[in-house]
Simulated scan of single mutants.
Amino acid sequence: MTERTVFQSMSHRHVISLAPQASVWDAACVMTKANCGSVLVIDPSGRMVGIVTERDLMTRVLAKALNPQTTKLSEVMTHDPQCVGPDTKVSEAVLIMIERGFRHLPVVAPTSKILGVFSVRDALPREIGAAINLAEFHDQVNDALG
């Protein structure tokens, strides 16, 4: 069976986004309403400048006792997040997430159009297993090369 691409696997194909000056409270409400784990931060020109995830809300806002109604997304977002193309294989995307320590990858077309966000939750167990095997292989090669 051919491996799925991130675009085929995305459970949310609509883009959830807010402006950098929106509050963390706004992001939490939008994410809750859309039942998703992230929101893209888009500047007035339409360029993606960041991403805010549920983990960011916990570690960068709640754990630091910041006021969600007055804290702006620009203060807590991950700036210029890594993106993948729609034809990226799921196992490749999961490998990127494993190696870089995040769970959400914006999917951007070659035309720079934002297509959505691929979440590790969108991957099947076999695809995650393939990515873990590849990550272990990378570790072994790096160890061998010193």
Results as ranks from 00 to 15, higher is better:
1 M>N: 10
3 E>Y: 11
7 F>R: 11
9 S>H: 04
9 S>D: 04
12 H>I: 13
13 R>I: 08
13 R>G: 03
13 R>E: 08
13 R>Y: 08
13 R>M: 08
14 H>C: 12
14 H>R: 15
16 I>G: 02
17 S>T: 11
17 S>E: 13
20 P>L: 04
22 A>K: 03
23 S>T: 15
24 V>E: 02
24 V>I: 04
24 V>D: 04
24 V>W: 01
25 W>E: 08
25 W>A: 08
26 D>V: 02
27 A>Y: 05
28 A>F: 00
30 V>K: 11
30 V>Y: 09
30 V>P: 08
31 M>C: 01
32 T>W: 08
33 K>S: 12
34 A>Y: 11
34 A>D: 11
35 N>D: 14
36 C>G: 06
38 S>A: 15
38 S>E: 07
39 V>Y: 01
39 V>S: 07
40 L>W: 01
41 V>K: 08
43 D>Q: 09
44 P>I: 00
46 G>K: 03
48 M>W: 00
49 V>K: 01
49 V>G: 07
52 V>Y: 00
54 E>K: 06
54 E>H: 05
54 E>C: 07
55 R>N: 02
56 D>G: 02
56 D>W: 03
58 M>K: 11
59 T>V: 10
59 T>N: 05
59 T>C: 05
60 R>A: 05
60 R>F: 03
60 R>K: 14
61 V>T: 04
61 V>L: 04
62 L>V: 13
65 A>R: 14
66 L>N: 03
66 L>P: 02
69 Q>Y: 11
72 K>G: 08
74 S>G: 06
75 E>I: 01
75 E>T: 06
77 M>N: 06
78 T>Y: 06
78 T>E: 05
78 T>C: 05
78 T>W: 08
79 H>T: 09
79 H>D: 07
80 D>H: 14
80 D>I: 06
81 P>E: 10
82 Q>E: 15
82 Q>L: 15
82 Q>Y: 12
83 C>S: 13
86 P>Q: 06
86 P>S: 07
88 T>N: 03
88 T>F: 09
89 K>W: 06
90 V>C: 13
90 V>M: 11
91 S>R: 12
94 V>A: 00
94 V>G: 01
97 M>D: 04
98 I>N: 00
99 E>T: 10
100 R>C: 10
100 R>I: 01
103 R>I: 09
105 L>T: 02
106 P>F: 02
107 V>Q: 03
107 V>A: 08
107 V>G: 05
109 A>W: 00
110 P>V: 12
110 P>L: 13
114 I>P: 00
115 L>Q: 10
115 L>I: 10
116 G>T: 08
117 V>F: 02
117 V>P: 05
118 F>V: 03
118 F>A: 07
119 S>R: 02
119 S>E: 08
119 S>H: 00
121 R>M: 13
121 R>N: 14
122 D>C: 07
123 A>M: 10
125 P>S: 12
126 R>K: 14
129 G>H: 09
129 G>N: 11
130 A>C: 12
131 A>C: 12
132 I>Y: 11
132 I>R: 13
133 N>M: 11
133 N>C: 09
136 E>Y: 14
137 F>H: 13
141 V>R: 09
141 V>E: 09
142 N>L: 14
143 D>G: 05
143 D>M: 12
144 A>S: 14
144 A>D: 10
145 L>C: 01
146 G>I: 10
